Computed example of a mutant assay.
Amino acid sequence: MRVTVVGGGHGCYAAAAEMAEKGHNVRLWRRDKQALESLSDAGAITLVDHRGRREVPLERITASLAEAVDDAELVIIPLPATTHQSLSVELAPLWQSGQVVYLPPGTFGSYLFMKTMREAGNEANVSFAETGTLPYLARKHGDREVVVSAYATRLPTGVFPSRNSDRALAVLRKAYPSIEPVEDALSGALMNAGPIIHPPLILMNAGPLEYFPSWDIHNEGTQPAIRRVTDALDAERIALREALGYVAPHFPLADHYSAGGDEWMYGNAAHEKLTDSGDWREKIELEQHRYMLEDTRLGLSLMVSLGRWLGLATPVAEGLMVLGSAVTGRDFYAEGRTLESMGLNSLDLAGFSGLLREGI
């Protein structure tokens, strides 16, 4: 299968390496020309995981989006949602009918990408899909090396428009057999673990994050008081899903921390794999880190706006979003990915359901 990976982040390198090892013809695009030159010279990504260290050749490494996307069957965009607005504009005229685009995770970016495509006058029949997490716990070590601590074992995935689900999921399963279908793209967006796990961790660890040169929010930063807030926030996410008519499994985040019970997206004991790696001991700049600008600003604002639209209170999500605004001096709701900002707040539930099914 012809697979394109868009971006040069941790998940992008992991996706490119995994897809190539699975026998797909992989193209990788990234914007950073200096980093791209180092990768192009080698023609391969160095992958380190439970199977050891090895070189994984890629078919093509390019700085041209048009070259990367042309004739691709599957386009994977494992980038933060903060990149979606500008990237969707660049990609809007390039999409071709039949293509499947995967946003792992998406924060309802599937709607944004299709809306921008239509506004550019592109009427191609493209399927945009999103899931609840990156398929990898991964960190880059240098310009062309990526270390993968764990691979996702369950990827709840929804498609926009959902009428394309059967074909899109068939394509996606060639890349990720661990995909599990959910109702639609909004259901997939409300599986996103980032806005549940990261805002409590960074805001309730703000003191040590600013004081120490590095701090592991997933290790010493994950304490019982913070986990109780995370559970309360996750309960609000699940309540939103149920109010929208989405059914279980809801993938409660508590399963991520449990060594037994229901398997979460990365399997049992995934939290221990993450902390044991040491790769998440880092310096987090609160005013600019993606945990703040992506998960707190975009992810929580989406939850809060859905709650307001449904008449369902989300006090923990709203409180954390307001705290993030105070820490950064910005208005996260005004800047957020809300129903208002996407022009969807005037729809009723039936109209929203029709949009999710039929697309734009």
Rank of each mutant, 00 (worst) to 15 (best):
64 S>I: 11
220 E>A: 12
140 K>F: 05
35 A>H: 15
352 F>D: 02
285 E>Y: 13
216 D>F: 08
352 F>T: 05
65 L>R: 06
342 M>E: 14
12 C>Y: 11
158 G>F: 00
333 Y>K: 07
21 E>T: 12
54 R>Q: 12
216 D>R: 08
20 A>Q: 04
55 E>N: 10
227 R>V: 13
160 F>T: 00
202 I>N: 01
19 M>Q: 12
125 N>I: 09
264 W>H: 15
115 K>F: 02
310 L>D: 06
351 G>T: 12
132 G>N: 05
190 L>T: 01
170 A>Y: 07
293 L>Y: 10
288 Q>R: 15
152 A>V: 07
7 G>Y: 01
201 L>P: 01
71 D>L: 08
90 E>R: 13
82 T>I: 10
309 W>H: 01
217 I>F: 02
177 P>E: 10
303 M>K: 09
163 R>T: 04
240 L>D: 00
169 L>T: 01
359 G>E: 01
55 E>I: 10
92 A>V: 01
241 R>E: 08
183 E>K: 08
106 G>C: 05
68 A>R: 02
19 M>I: 06
355 L>F: 08
236 E>N: 03
67 E>H: 13
93 P>N: 06
19 M>F: 09
16 A>S: 13
268 N>H: 14
211 Y>C: 11
120 A>R: 06
114 M>H: 15
221 G>F: 02
118 R>I: 03
324 G>A: 09
347 L>H: 08
228 R>M: 15
91 L>N: 01
128 F>R: 00
148 V>N: 01
72 A>N: 03
197 I>G: 03
81 A>R: 03
250 H>K: 07
341 S>Q: 11
1 M>W: 10
294 E>T: 08
238 I>C: 02
122 N>C: 07
188 G>H: 01
106 G>F: 00
99 Q>C: 03
253 L>Q: 01
173 R>Y: 07
108 F>I: 02
105 P>L: 07
346 S>N: 07
298 L>F: 09
352 F>W: 11
329 G>N: 06
225 A>H: 08
145 E>R: 10
27 R>G: 06
233 L>N: 04
309 W>M: 03
245 G>M: 06
274 L>V: 07
205 N>L: 12
316 V>T: 14
67 E>C: 11
49 D>V: 06
156 P>I: 03
57 P>D: 06
93 P>I: 08
125 N>D: 13
149 S>Y: 04
79 L>H: 08
313 A>K: 15
1 M>K: 13
